[in-house]
Write a protein that binds this DNA or RNA. Structure first.
Length: 875
DNA sequence: GCCTCAGGGCCATAC
DNA sequence: GTATGGCCCTGAGGC
């Protein structure tokens, strides 16, 4: 969720607008204006944008997030309505009156009224935008359909404003309205264009480029550029700017925004508020170089016209050519050649005006691996990824990334590489087969984005190219921005390059050379910043599909942005934050030497087990025990869960601990599809597992890991799936059934939305993930049976959490005839009664009894010792 | 068939 | 000896 939405929603009721900001009001006057007599619960949200923005739009996704957030916060009831005002008045931002009264609502108003027919509540959201010049108007109608299962779907439609849609209240006549088209649906697919000739493009401009001037040229032909261009819509998203190209280029007479800057000062923060404001650069627009259509009719094949180039109207190569033909420059020198310059020199010339390389400040040479950057950084990035290079920053106490400039870039390749990633370079753009030429097909590649743009209309391609990478700014998918879009962004409120608060873990799995080390990364490295290890084994033809270069070597994992302005709902942020917090804890030890039998208390080994083997078992079980403690810490840090009754917490953890352990194994093993990763430096493969009698388990884990990898299982997926597994509201004896169910549904919905909107390259990802749960549960059942088959007492302390949970498993088996004489508190509350999905794994009583005999043979002692858990233990 | 453009490779230079 | 980076080659896709 965008900062503006987030902030406005976080403060209920009226708030004081300060400067250019988003405010939320509950203006009864507005309500009365919009409410056509119905007694609906009304929520008002005002989005304020400054002067000179010819319009402003909210993407459908934003709308949906807004609705979801309002629903979750209880502010939006069924049969309620929401009025979203998008203010874009003529007043100057700083002179704007402090209170948003109805008189100010002169620019736009959006109205969402709700009527809930039975199982679905259909929320129509209309966004009306006014230029103040009068003329025909259109409405974007978006239906938010809240299904019975809690999911929210959207549908879009465009219609003329003259006839208010059913269920909507009347809009105030505010002059010319424009229509923007929603580009993505909840399933991540592009919606068909409806009605208008063009569709908008979303262009993400990283906030780091706040000082970069962005020139926006009209879409129309150059000859009409100055008079009939489409206005640009600007919204804020998670510290990034989204420029939404107006779709209506046919009838609007609004003045084009020719040039504006994104200024640091415009990114205001007011407590939890974060507001984006775009300020117009010039009252009198600078000369605009018509942006050449990238495709189709004009046969202009210039490289994308960067904004700065557009500004440089007198540029030799990108002259202010007002004709449809233009000087074409190609490296082949076929056109526009000076005769003496090499083709390459000519080619490079195109980018001279682009501005500095976002990484080192050198000259941009072109679009490389996802961003505009210089040749040097291109080569550096290529070598680093291709050769799996490992760097280390030698700063003793790094608090920020080393300064990377054209002169200093050689000094710290570690920080340079992190900066490459941070600025949006994509490792998946490096080809594993090293084939030359052709179009790159990695997710997010410009080519794919162009294809997508064409498929959805074509005109926005021009816009996309125009807005692409101002001054070397990295670009992001113009449509349906990827979750890791934030890779290319930095803080929206600061120009601080980086911070080393979070870390990029580049961990080697090599035993000897595998020195785990950290490369400092930015806390601003962007929303969803997780370079999925699966990406490195992309199945795509041009990606590093079958590369063995990467996946066995390193994992590049950047933290998901968790700062306030992250573009995701609050609950999701909290979950991610908890996940990151737990992940940041020191890694568990897998120590084959320190766990001696004396600590266990049982020194008698089974006759066929050597001390050496016992040490291995002890180490592994101890590792599992440590992981379980971590799981408990994780769960207790979760919202909702931490507020549950202790009995409920115990019950829920009893139910899923093995699932979580197995999922954790898979998660850690994503970079090593042929081995299950125990720690960052130790793995177990099938051969080793066979020797330990765990071949089936490891094989199942591997298959699961590979499935998840194929699905591009990321941190958000991981975190949400864990919550999903934990919060099982169907458990018998669970007290807070409703809260648990609601939380699970909420997280499920968030994950579905996230996957639908941000993981479009993995069809049905959410469903695919859910389908894996039974397999995960089978695997975890296998693991528990394996543990039960082994007599663990020689290897594991009696008061280990693992032992306790296994004991609780035993008690939860239906029909267990011989309960242990003493049970730990973990099992006390629900012994013999709680049934779970795992309990449905049928076992015979004899089997269960026999398998557990070893586990419980010291039950009395364990019960006594373990009882401390109830007060001071993990639970 | 030509052009685009974003990949990779080569190799002189720097460290 | 290795890393760097400037220059050029390559080739799928678009027109």
């Amino acid at each position: 969720m965008s900062a503006s939405f987030q902030c406005s929603l976080s403060d209920s009721g009226r708030s004081e607008p300060k400067g250019n900001e988003v405010v939320e009001t509950n203006n009864d006057d507005l309500s009365s204006l919009q409410d056509s007599g119905t007694k609906l619960d009304t929520t008002h949200v005002t989005i304020q944008l400054p002067e000179s923005m010819q319009g402003n739009s909210i993407s459908q996704q934003k709308m949906q997030e807004l609705i979801v957030h309002l629903s979750q916060s209880g502010q939006l009831k069924d049969d309620g309505k929401i009025i979203i005002e998008v203010k874009g008045t003529q007043e100057k931002p700083k002179e704007r009156p402090s209170e948003g009264n109805s008189d100010e609502i002169s620019a736009q108003q959006s109205v969402c009224s709700v009527k809930a027919p039975q199982t679905h509540s259909i929320k129509y959201v209309t966004v009306q935008q006014a230029s103040g010049t009068g003329g025909p108007s259109n409405l974007q109608k978006t239906a938010f359909i809240k299904a019975a299962n809690g999911s929210i779907q959207t549908k879009s439609d465009t219609h003329n404003q003259s006839v208010p849609a059913q269920g909507q209240t009347e809009h105030k006549g505010l002059g010319t309205t424009g229509t923007y088209h929603i580009l993505t649906s909840t399933n991540g697919q592009h919606l068909q264009q409806s009605g208008q000739a063009q569709q908008p493009a979303y262009i993400l401009i990283p906030a780091t480029q706040q000082t970069q001037q962005i020139n926006v040229a009209p879409l129309n032909s150059p000859s009409t550029a100055s008079s009939s261009s489409a206005p640009i819509r600007v919204v804020n998203q998670g510290g990034q700017h989204i420029i939404l190209q107006h779709a209506n280029n046919s009838s609007t007479t609004s003045t084009p925004i020719s040039s504006f800057s994104l200024k640091t000062a415009s990114m205001l923060k007011d407590g939890e508020r974060s507001v984006v404001v775009l300020q117009q650069q010039h009252q009198n627009p600078a000369p605009i170089v018509p942006v050449r259509p990238f495709v189709q009719q004009h046969n202009n094949r210039l490289p994308p016209a960067p904004p700065a180039i557009a500004a440089a109207a007198t540029s030799a190569t990108f002259s202010a050519n007002t004709s449809t033909s233009s000087v074409r420059v190609s490296r082949g020198g076929s056109l526009g050649s000076s005769g003496k310059e090499s083709s390459w020199q000519q080619y490079v010339k195109q980018f001279e005006k682009l501005g500095p390389c976002p990484i080192c400040g050198d000259k941009i040479s072109g679009y490389h691996y996802g961003i505009f950057c210089c040749e040097s950084c291109k080569g550096f990035f290529k070598r680093t990824v291709q050769n799996s290079k490992r760097y280390a920053c030698h700063m003793a106490t790094p608090s920020s990334l080393c300064d990377i400039t054209a002169t200093s870039r050689k000094k710290c390749p570690a920080c340079r590489f992190v900066k490459c990633l941070e600025k949006g370079m994509r490792m998946e753009a490096i080809r594993s087969d090293r084939t030359r030429g052709g179009r790159s097909m990695y997710p997010g590649s410009r080519y794919l984005r162009q294809l997508a743009a064409r498929a959805s209309g074509g005109s926005e391609v021009k816009c996309e190219l125009k807005g692409t990478s101002a001054g070397g700014v990295s670009t992001l998918p113009a449509i349906a921005p990827l979750p890791n879009a934030g890779v290319s962004t930095t803080s929206s409120t600061t120009n601080e390059p980086f911070s080393k608060i979070d870390s990029v873990h580049i961990m080697s799995l090599g035993v000897s050379s595998g020195v785990a080390y950290e490369i400092p990364a930015s806390e601003d490295v962007g929303g969803g910043v997780y370079l999925d290890p699966a990406v490195l084994e992309d199945t795509g033809g041009s990606g590093p599909a079958s590369s063995s270069t990467f996946h066995d070597e390193s994992i590049y994992r950047l933290p998901v942005r968790t700062q306030e302005n992250i573009d995701m709902p609050k609950i999701l942020r909290e979950i991610i934050k908890v996940e990151e917090s737990v992940e940041s804890e020191p890694e568990e030890r897998l120590d084959f030497d320190s766990t001696d039998a004396s600590q266990i208390g049982v020194s008698t080994l089974p006759p066929n087990v050597t001390e050496e083997e016992a040490a291995v078992y002890r180490a592994l079980l101890n590792l599992a025990d440590q992981r379980l403690y971590r799981i408990v810490r994780w769960s207790r840090a979760l919202p909702v869960f931490s507020n549950l009754d202790t009995d409920d917490q115990i019950l829920l953890l009893q139910n899923c601990w093995a699932d979580l352990l197995c999922l954790d194994c898979c998660w850690k093993s994503l970079p090593t599809p042929t081995e299950i990763r125990l720690t960052s430096t130790k793995c177990i493969n099938l051969d080793a597992a066979r020797e330990m009698g765990a071949e089936g388990l490891v094989d199942s884990l591997l298959r699961l890991t590979q499935d998840l990898k194929r699905l591009r299982f990321g941190l958000i997926d991981f975190a949400c799936l864990k919550v999903f597994l934990l919060m099982q509201g169907e458990l018998v004896n669970l007290k807070a059934v409703r809260q648990v169910k609601q939380f699970q549904e909420c997280v499920s919905q968030l994950l579905m939305d996230y996957n639908a909107t941000s993981c479009a390259d993995v069809p049905n990802k959410f469903t695919e993930l859910l389908v894996r749960i039974p397999e995960l549960q089978r695997t975890s059942a296998m693991a528990r049976e394996l543990l039960v088959d082994k007599d663990l007492s020689p290897y594991l302390s009696a008061n280990s959490l693992l032992m306790e949970l296994l004991r609780s498993d035993f008690h939860r088996q239906p029909g267990n005839l011989v309960p242990p004489t003493s049970v730990g508190p973990v099992a006390m509350d629900t012994s013999g009664q709680a049934t779970t999905f795992l309990a449905s794994q049928h076992r015979t009583e004899d089997d269960v009894d026999g398998r557990h005999r070893g586990v419980f043979q010291t039950g009395d002692t364990m019960g006594t010792e373990a009882s401390s858990y109830s007060t001071s233990g993990p639970l």
